Simulated assay, not measured.
Amino acid sequence: MDKREVDRLIEEQYPNLPPILQRAARYAIDNPKAIALNSMRSVAAEAGLQASAMHRLARQLGFDGYDAMREVYRTWLAEGTGSFAARASELQKRGAHDQAESLLAELVQAEFRNLQGLLEPGTQRAIAGARDVLAQARHIYVVGLRSLMPAAFYFNYACGMFLQNTTLLSGIGGTFADDLRRAGKEDALLVFSYAPYARDAVSAVRFAHAQGVRVVSVTDSAVSPIAAPATALVLLANATPSLFPSVVPALAVAQALAALLVAGGGKDSLRAIARSEAQLREFSVYHQDARS
């Protein structure tokens, strides 16, 4: 079990927990670093609870006790929540000790675990739900800022082959939010955002939600600031020893959503793709090898 799964369990069970355990669960959601770093007694005191409440919460979530739950938070803290400078420093330490091969292995193994999460039934249902929202939209606005720009760009680029209703909010010339002025209840906003959450991405979600736009959020936590307003929520693991949280699972979701939209697009999509290919040939976009 990883922290994302713990967050999901808390979210699912929270409404039915007794008040004491709700307070403990709320503290765990709001203060994950404290759980990772502090003893059960210290955490309980900070939360204004008896130590037994944290133990009971851990048992409620399927752990043998608090220490087992705490280990999940420790792993989460070690893998993904340090500052960029701290993560870079750790990478350089490993480089100085000639650990390139072991680091590469860890990077690949982390991505393998991240992508395995996409095969979980709940995640597959979430991706299918996201596809349904996007397929029904009059217009799709797409956001992915900073390190997650590749996921947003890919989705917009791929959909441009067979759809004419997508807009990438890129922020060129300082115009990031301008296209959202036209967004309304028949539209959808697809947003990719991880901690630390880009301010403009969060603002776009809040604005779009207030306008009645259906939001599809691809993010890393059930308590992400873009999670609550979402019509469809896809939660991803993104742990990696690298500098930034992994972009690989977000790219995988972008590819999956584009593929699912093609799969359900019927003959209209096929005709649009044929026209797009003809236009690309007209402009000689791709290099053609001479064949004898």
Rank of each mutant, 00 (worst) to 15 (best):
Q136T: 04
F176N: 00
L251N: 06
V213I: 05
N156W: 08
A237F: 08
D200W: 12
L251D: 02
I172A: 02
V218L: 00
L134P: 15
F155V: 02
V247E: 01
D187T: 01
L251W: 04
Y154H: 12
L251K: 05
A239N: 05
Y157F: 12
V215D: 04
A208G: 08
V248E: 00
G171P: 12
A188N: 08
N238W: 02
S224C: 15
A198P: 12
V191K: 06
V218T: 03
L163E: 00
S221Q: 07
V218P: 02
T166L: 07
P249C: 08
A222Q: 11
G212E: 07
V202T: 05
S170E: 07
I226L: 05
L145Y: 15
P225A: 03
D187C: 10
P245L: 11
A222Y: 15
A177I: 01
A152Y: 06
Y197F: 15
S170T: 11
Y157H: 05
G174P: 06
D179P: 15
A232R: 05
A222C: 15
A195P: 08
P229Y: 05
R214M: 10
E186S: 14
A210H: 11
R214L: 13
S242T: 01
G160L: 03
S203F: 07
A188V: 04
T231F: 06
P229H: 10
V215I: 12
V234H: 11
M161C: 04
L236G: 01
Q164V: 00
Y141G: 06
P150H: 13
L169N: 02
A151D: 11
L169D: 00
S217V: 14
D220L: 13
F192K: 14
S217I: 12
A254H: 07
A250V: 08
K185S: 12
A237V: 01
L180G: 07
V215K: 08
V202D: 01
D178N: 02
F192P: 03
Q136D: 07
S246Y: 13
Y141S: 01
Y194V: 04
A228S: 15
P245R: 11
L180K: 02
H139L: 11
V143G: 04
P241E: 00
K185A: 13
D179E: 10
D178E: 02
R181H: 01
V253E: 01
G160C: 08
V234K: 14
D178A: 09
T175C: 10
A195F: 15
N165Y: 10
G160P: 04
Q136F: 13
G160M: 00
A239E: 09
A222V: 15
D178K: 09
V215Y: 13
I140C: 13
L236Q: 07
P196Y: 10
L243G: 10
V248D: 00
R146A: 15
T167P: 08
I172D: 09
A137M: 10
P196T: 06
L243K: 07
S147T: 14
I172F: 14
Y157W: 09
R206Y: 09
G171E: 11
N238L: 09
V223Q: 06
A177G: 07
N165R: 13
Y197S: 01
